[in-house]
Design a protein around this nucleic acid. Structure first.
Lengths: 333, 333
DNA sequence: CTGTTAGCGCCTTCAT
DNA sequence: ATGAAGGCGCTAACAG
């Protein structure tokens, strides 16, 4: 049985109110403060956050829903989010949506029942229906990495189109024309990056060969298969833009396995910075997302809503990315 | 303001007790059940788990502490754990210890303050001191993957020595004698697997060359650097056992970069099954851990303790591993 | 099967 | 600065 505030009341002779005040950072006579602190130590007292939550209506807990815990991208984001939230005194309740919209919907309910103060979500769904109940309950939500097609929620993401346009410049100024893309099709990020790809090509006056456009799933397998396919084409592309970590990795493997060399035989431009891409040979040219900054902004926006209860117009923040130089792009004459 | 049980009491004219009973799966007259269900739907009522927790002293929440969220191994485990616990109606509070013992200690306190019903931990620390407070508070703990040098807690892990001995047989029966090991030094798993390595060598009557023993950190860099070092030796080993995912990956990169070929020039035997090892060329011979089974056992043990309040002697479960055939081992004459 | 009555541990007015 | 009392939303005895 853990000690309660009553135990320390009896131990110190003070009233509940005084102790509670101390616990919450209020002013207490120095002598009383000493007494209380002694009692806390001896009794090994610890605030019962549950009881506190019941009366304050704040659990100091943030729910985090990720499309897949089992993904390095989410893992890194979770790492930052958890560190930042801890610094603010918040705990985190993590839910794995497991790339499943139904699960995602259940997760929201689950978090709401647990009275989280707010929710950060890297969504699976593309529409906002699953978030309706957070509205009714007035629980603030911040979208991370992926925006939704409808509904208005705060959102922190990167400027995907600009990132791709900027990155594609590397290929274009090295005189690549036969440029392929392997990307995910349904996700917000995949769609946006494909847009960026098309815009970059258009601006450069380079025609997009339909055979070079491989839109499918966000998976290593998709990257692998399609790179194989591209390499087998009669008119092989000279460069490939790979849309995310999984796809890039799969594509690199396909190249290695084919006996061809990157960048001599094919150039690769990737998205997402994972340590592995620095270490393999050649190091990959890629777009780095500011994961820490994204996490910080997301927390900042969420806590802002929570603290102020503000219902202002939702904000959408698009952060800049950085292009990391590698040796995976060949310069063409 | 979410609806409370009182709102539905007024809406139905029933008493709190009846409604509570319904909420907890008790028997209620069919007509009342209908009334209650209607009210719940209309009022959009949802049990307040906080209030419930305050009285039942159960939060139906399990704390999970991992040495690093940002690691594929932990990510996969989290995936399974979260799915299994959800099935049992539990939520999870995840803490990232970030490979830091101090953080780990704070995490325990944090979880205890949040009154989790139990804790599953993949520890950073090697001794059990940081878990003392769980004892005082009578909160059950299950260790996962890594045992501690002292203290007695339930523990679910694999039989590391047997796994390595079994795996090493592949190298030995293919007539490898110059076998190196790159492993982590401090961690429980690293130590155990090194033990297994030595035993296997001893049993086979093969002497361990000290130059071939690289004990250090659990990191990609360690694998990379040491494989480079091994490849540069005058008397290069013919095979290398790599202790875990990160090290194996680093080692593979070093090989690729060196221009040498696996398995022609050097054979590799890895630990931990990650999809990437199936896809690279050559697919890696490796030990697969039964992550799902580990997760299930851990949950089972923990919920067992929670439900029964039993304080029986802690149990240690060692699961069997599976050897996955690859093409990364060459047969020597 | 249903209703009444106490709390769970804490924070928050109010007085003092 | 401190104390006394009431209540957060729910469940757990009881009694009927």
């Amino acid at each position: 049985m853990p000690a309660t505030i009553i135990d320390i009341k009896e131990r110190t002779g003070l009233s509940l109110a005084t102790i509670s005040k101390y616990l919450n950072g209020g002013n207490v006579l120095p002598e009383n403060r000493v007494k209380i602190e002694a009692a806390i130590k001896e009794l090994n007292y610890e605030v019962n956050e549950i009881a506190r939550g019941l009366v304050t209506k704040k659990t100091r807990t943030i729910g985090i829903m990720v499309h897949s815990v089992d993904s390095p991208f989410c893992g890194q984001l979770l790492h930052f989010l958890s560190e930042i939230l801890r610094r603010h005194g918040y705990g985190i309740l993590i839910c794995d949506s497991n790339n499943d919209e139904e699960q995602e919907e259940q997760n929201v309910k689950h978090l709401l029942g647990r009275k989280v103060d707010g929710i950060i979500v890297i969504p699976v769904s593309e529409t906002a229906a699953f978030l309706d109940c957070t509205r009714k309950r007035n629980v603030p939500v911040v979208l991370l990495d992926r925006a939704l097609t409808d509904g208005s929620f705060d959102c922190v993401k990167i400027d995907n189109r600009a990132a791709v346009i900027n990155a594609m410049d590397v290929l274009l100024r090295n005189n690549h024309k036969k440029i392929a893309i392997i990307a995910s099709k349904k996700e917000y990020t995949g769609r946006e990056r494909y847009e960026g790809f098309k815009q970059a090509m258009k601006k450069a006056g380079v025609k997009v060969n339909k055979q070079y456009v491989c839109l499918g799933s966000h998976s290593l397998a998709w990257g692998y298969e399609n790179m194989k396919k591209l390499l087998a084409l009669r008119e092989r592309p000279t460069a490939v833009f790979t849309d995310n970590y999984e796809i890039t990795l799969g594509a690199m493997m396909a190249v290695n396995e084919s006996g061809l060399k990157c960048p001599e035989d094919i150039s690769i431009l990737g998205f997402d910075d994972q340590i592995i891409f620095h270490l393999i040979n050649p190091p990959v040219y890629m777009v780095e997302q500011p994961l820490q900054e994204m996490s910080e902004k997301a927390v900042e926006m969420l806590l802002g809503r929570i603290d102020s209860g503000s219902l202002d117009q939702p904000k959408e923040i698009s952060l800049d990315t950085r292009l990391i130089e590698g040796s995976s792009v060949k310069s063409l004459p």
